[in-house]
Amino acid sequence: MTTPVSEPALEVHDLTVTYQRKPALWDVDFAIPAGVLAGIVGPNGAGKSTLIKAIMELLPTASGYVRIFGKSLEEVRGRISYVPQRESVDWDFPASALDVVLMGRYRQRGLFRRLSDRDRRIARDCLHQVGMEAFASRQIAQLSGGQQQRVFLARALAQEADLYLMDEPFAGVDASTEEAVLELLTRLRDSGKTILVVHHDLQTAARYFDWMIMLNTRLVAAGPREQVFTNEMLQETYGGKLTLLQAVGNLAGSKGLPLRE
């Protein structure tokens, strides 16, 4: 079940991705409108990270294509920001929080060019937006998991993009960071940006997102949350695998949890 979208920010057409011939994504086809905070949910191994990586062309696709703001990735790359899973890098790297955020400025600056004072100002401002300005010069290994996640978000902000693709920005963060991150994403959305977030927790998904993509190797559903985040769709997405999650899904579907805070 997918909802058609006119003037989408992101369109994924019949995307199939395989790892050594084993499909991780099968004929996935959906679109999301501009200005939404969209969540990708699905069980472990559903292909959520694969989807984001394929959109960013970090993986070869077996078939299908992606359009962003109606163009190819190469044409609009400067308007897109990618936040990898926090575990995808080794944080015991000789860099400070500010150094990492500055990495978000490399593209604007171009090859060979040195970073300018303006870049530094922007980076500091981004750290400030995620509440990490006090940790600017802290070595990244000495940050907690939630703080590292915030540094990644600040780096994405420094890219000044229009479309943000984030892989599990809420994973392994404490409750206060989770609220702070959510507030930040909502603010971005309200200023007209489009945000696509891989998310694990169904209980909060109902509250956080206004657009949902439900994935389990194939696309189960994509559309406005209140239309697709239903008992039936959750069951189809999660199968009988996770009874606990199913229970939560039932709760969300039948009782209609508060849709926005």
């Binding site: 970090l58 790359r77 990618y82 990898p84 995808s88 790297f93 990495m103 490399y106 593209r107 090859l111």
Partner: peptide, 21 residues
């Protein structure tokens, strides 16, 4: 000359590629 690019490449190659390096 390539110090910042090599640094990013060593720290987070996926991000580097996504950013268009």
């Amino acid at each position: 000359l390539f110090f910042k690019e090599f640094t990013l490449l060593s720290f987070d190659p996926d991000f580097a590629q996504a950013a268009g390096l």
